[in-house]
Design a protein around this nucleic acid. Structure first.
Lengths: 187, 187
DNA sequence: GTCTATAGGGCGATAGAC
DNA sequence: GTCTATCGCCCTATAGAC
């Protein structure tokens, strides 16, 4: 057995979600989270660049998931189809990482806190940028790639919102397909 | 003559842009900005909720512009056309507020600073939400409205990026039309 | 780990405009 | 008198430097 309990990151994440739910994000200090997780405040900031990141740092980034999926998409497909395929794939892999219940609770906290919404939007924008780059890598024109990538990001956001709204029994990937179909019908 | 020089907000905005350009956002303190504008730090925070807002607070919000434009769009149009019309209109009115040169300088600062990119994304998301609500108000289904609104936001972002890139002589509104055409060609 | 600067909130005092 | 903008001083938490 080691000198410290293992999985400090996991404990901090858990403590953060508990405290944010109990007291709200603003009223919870980084020190509170660290204390509940049994580490020092300094340790918290060594693991997470800032207080927000505790809810966003994970084993994989959306960026990588989407970029990888776009890179391996069907070469015959249109740019939009490629990137929609990419977010579908990302949705599948993301679902394996956490339960819907966890996602719902996390979404509730994020939605209630502007500072966290900002960070979530940044992650989405980074995903779109990664998807755009992956499309350009496959020979798609810059402007087309930018719009396709951001449209796909919109699809992902809509799908995620629907999934965590608990108004459906669809999986996240199915919500993505549903939203993609809606997008493609727009004229 | 009053006790204080008039237009404290305007002076703070000007001071902020100067200092952010000279030293960068991070190395500029709220106190620095306040001092150059001839007010105290506390006054700065009474005008702006936080340091970032100095670059985003304006006489009108993108929200209102778009919501207003969507509300008065052609009733025969499709939801997507309505909201694309809305961002076109918003682009026209926005152009009247500041010169392209000012926009370019501001964009340079924002792009170089993650904290400011986050805030910009939040404003865009708020614009999309406002557009979505305006569409729903006109009887468009929630999911369609969400996707149309976010797609239009993507168009606006792409257009703004192109406009400030100075690779074109098109006006902002023309860039919007160009990007909208690209979006509509996606399959 | 310790130290420190900055962000940003609370609140009473002040001095003009009305 | 009220209303409003500013000041000034106190405070805590964040986050970076050492």
């Amino acid at each position: 057995m080691g000198r410290w309990e293992p999985d400090a990151r996991g404990r901090m994440l858990e403590a953060a979600i508990e405290l944010f739910t109990e007291k709200g994000y603003d009223k919870t200090t980084a020190g509170d989270i660290a204390a509940r997780a049994g580490v020092t405040e300094r340790t918290f900031f060594r693991h997470f660049a800032d207080k927000r990141e505790v809810l966003f740092a994970g084993p994989v980034t959306l960026d990588d998931l989407v970029a990888k999926a776009v890179a391996s998409a069907d070469a015959e497909a249109t740019p939009l189809r490629m990137v929609l395929d990419g977010v579908h794939q990302a949705a599948v892999e993301l679902s394996a990482l956490r339960t819907r219940e966890q996602a719902v609770e996390r979404a509730r906290i994020v939605e209630a806190t502007p500072a966290l919404r900002e960070r979530e939007l940044l992650k989405m924008a980074d995903m779109a940028t990664a998807a755009q780059a992956a499309l350009v890598e496959r020979g798609v024109a810059e402007t087309v790639a930018a719009l396709a990538a951001h449209a796909a990001a919109a699809v992902f956001q809509a799908a995620f919102g629907r999934w965590v709204s608990e108004t459906t029994d669809l999986s996240l990937a199915e919500c993505v397909d549903e939203a993609a179909a809606t997008l493609l019908e727009l004229r």
